[in-house]
Computed example of a mutant assay.
Amino acid sequence: MRLHDRVFLLLGGTGGIGKALVEPLIRAGAKVIVASRQPEGLARLSGVSAVHLDLAAPDLEHQLVRLSEAYPDIDGVIHCAGQNYFASLGELPVTAIDDQLMVNLRSAMLVARHFAPRFEAAGYGALVFVGSTFGSIGFPGYTAYCATKFGVRGFSEALRRELADTPVQVVYVAPRATATAMNPEAVNELNHALGNKMDAPEAVAAQILKAMENDDLRRFLGWPEKLFVVINGILPRIVDKAMLKQLPVIRRFLNSEVLS
């Protein structure tokens, strides 16, 4: 995938992995449109435009129409937006379930629904979805988040196959645990207790760009996480047993968001 002279709409570009993508895209010669609910708070950089877009809004479809009219040159979308909430299902607020469904999954589907036909008509375009290792491995305390990320992985796979005879590229990248402000301190402590490695957002952003430049269909990040994804798909009972051993440690940190 060529990055130079492309115009990318970046969703989730105000923090974490998305924010780390902005400058590398600019250095690669792309123009970036960062969508946010509060675009006025974004730093002004050459080659970067800030626009209003509320991914959780019921009228997201109409917002996308207005956005396309204002920026008709968009020829790529990077969906890097996401919300998570670490809690047992019984303690998970309904609003947290709804927010994750709306932002993580529904918005990805509506964005693709809006842009895929436009890219196909134009003869080129790319849809890049940033998923998660938890889109392949269910993890205690992240039931809703895993459900949405499993959905993003399945959706992107089905969409890629649906558009296989078109010029539209569909790329899926699944990072492992990443050190972003989205993680509460309890999650950082849990990862430390379990010995889970956490990647810097800049390292993940570099891998996303490599996946785009190499025309990867999918890219899973981190070792041994990539191996666990394969094992979980073939022999899930092995992962079940490993998770059962970890469960007492996980329960020490579970629901701290709810109780704090």
Rank of each mutant, 00 (worst) to 15 (best):
R218P: 00
P184V: 00
K210Y: 13
L159Y: 09
E185S: 13
N214V: 04
V170N: 03
Q246T: 07
A121I: 08
G131D: 11
A126N: 04
V128S: 14
K226L: 03
S156V: 05
C146E: 13
C146W: 00
T166G: 06
P167H: 13
Q207G: 08
G151M: 08
F150H: 14
V171C: 11
M182K: 08
K241N: 11
V130T: 08
D199R: 01
D199N: 08
P140H: 12
N196R: 07
T133R: 10
Y142N: 15
T166M: 03
A126S: 13
G125L: 14
V230G: 15
I137V: 15
W223G: 00
A203G: 07
V230E: 04
T178A: 13
H192N: 14
V130I: 15
I238Q: 09
K149D: 02
M212C: 12
D199K: 00
R219C: 01
A164Q: 11
A211Y: 04
D215G: 06
R237S: 10
D215K: 00
P248V: 14
A179C: 02
R218Q: 12
L244F: 15
R218N: 06
E120S: 11
K210I: 13
K226I: 01
I137F: 02
L227M: 12
V173Q: 10
P140L: 11
L235D: 03
M198E: 06
I234G: 12
E120M: 04
A179V: 05
N188I: 05
Y145W: 06
I234C: 08
A200Y: 00
V171I: 15
P224Y: 04
A186V: 08
A205M: 00
A177P: 07
P167N: 13
E202L: 03
A203N: 06
V173C: 13
E189C: 09
N232T: 15
G123H: 05
K210G: 00
M212S: 12
Q207I: 00
E213S: 15
A122C: 02
A181S: 11
D216C: 12
A164P: 01
I137C: 01
P248S: 06
T166Y: 02
V187P: 05
F134M: 12
Q246V: 07
T180W: 04
M212V: 15
L163H: 10
F134G: 11
L227K: 04
Q246C: 08
A164N: 08
A121L: 09
R176T: 14
E157I: 03
P175R: 10
I208P: 02
Q169N: 11
L209M: 12
L217Y: 09
P248F: 14
V173H: 14
V173F: 14
K226F: 01
G141I: 13
D199G: 01
